[in-house]
Nucleic acid binder design. Sequence first.
DNA 1: TTAGTTTAAGACAATAAACTCTTAAATAGG
DNA 2: CCTATTTAAGAGTTTATTGTCTTAAACTAA
Lengths: 150, 150
Amino acid sequence: MLLSKSCVYGLRAALYLAAKRDGSYYSIRTMSEELDISFHFLTKILQQLTADSLLESYKGPNGGVRLSAKGKKSTLFDLVIAIDGPGLFTECALGLPGCGSEEPCPLHNSWIDTRASIENMLKRTNLTKIAEEGKEKHFRLTADGHFSWS
Amino acid sequence: MLLSKSCVYGLRAALYLAAKRDGSYYSIRTMSEELDISFHFLTKILQQLTADSLLESYKGPNGGVRLSAKGKKSTLFDLVIAIDGPGLFTECALGLPGCGSEEPCPLHNSWIDTRASIENMLKRTNLTKIAEEGKEKHFRLTADGHFSWS
DNA sequence: TTAGTTTAAGACAATAAACTCTTAAATAGG
DNA sequence: CCTATTTAAGAGTTTATTGTCTTAAACTAA
Ligand code: FES
Ligand code: FES
């Protein structure tokens, strides 16, 4: 799997928030139900995004989370880094420590190109833009496709 | 992580075998020591490659494993499929079931291109060729670079 | 035939990832 | 002030992956 499950859940929730263009807070409970993700698990993942200032949270009644200014400008790359860390973009394809051209493994030359193409894809994919497109074209965000972009 | 640890171990062992151009059997015990991989774990992984006819094995003294004719012609893609299965090349980036253009998720259009570039990289990388190159250029196959291509 | 070597197979254990639950802290509204 | 609601934090549980161990089967050579 390219991305961890935590990361995928985080991306789906971020797309959810990005599709709502107003600045109000959305409850994690509601999001978890609409997206079919465990509430407590999603909470922990979104805390990572909040800690990285991609989201803002507010406690209490009518509280929830929303995209920060930084979050609205973010790309999928930023979200992946916040949740899975930079490993995918720095590590050796054969798992050897210290991937680099000084001591390359046999896959190094092939891998750095492919790795860059993954990175570029994520960097050029703006969260808000992809959410807008998903909303327009009614792309699905859940297994059963039952989620509605509202 | 792009590839599982099992898969990476299998690739490294396959590169080891591909660098030996004679058709004799190499003991898994020796390979596991030279490559710093747990013997029993490596055995199980190589059994998968043997089951998929990429390797041939022989029991008893002077036994071991060697590349089959199919194995010699194989690409990294074949090895990845044999160990990790086809998931990486068929599954949705958001983990939704049934990735396809009928019911795409917001990442689908970006992901299928990137996925294809990973697949093409693995398919164009011939095991024997990459092992030859690794041998010539003394690329490393272990963490400490202590492995010698002999 | 017997003992030693090697892969095959599968049970078992340790670790990591995924998921759940409980309690605390902040906030709103009555 | 009190209660309900919501995120924060972290402990605990389950499941998947990784790694170890034991026994069996195939084979060699003495
Ligand atoms: S050293 Fe292995 S991919 Fe860079
Ligand atoms: S449906 Fe999500 S990547 Fe194809």
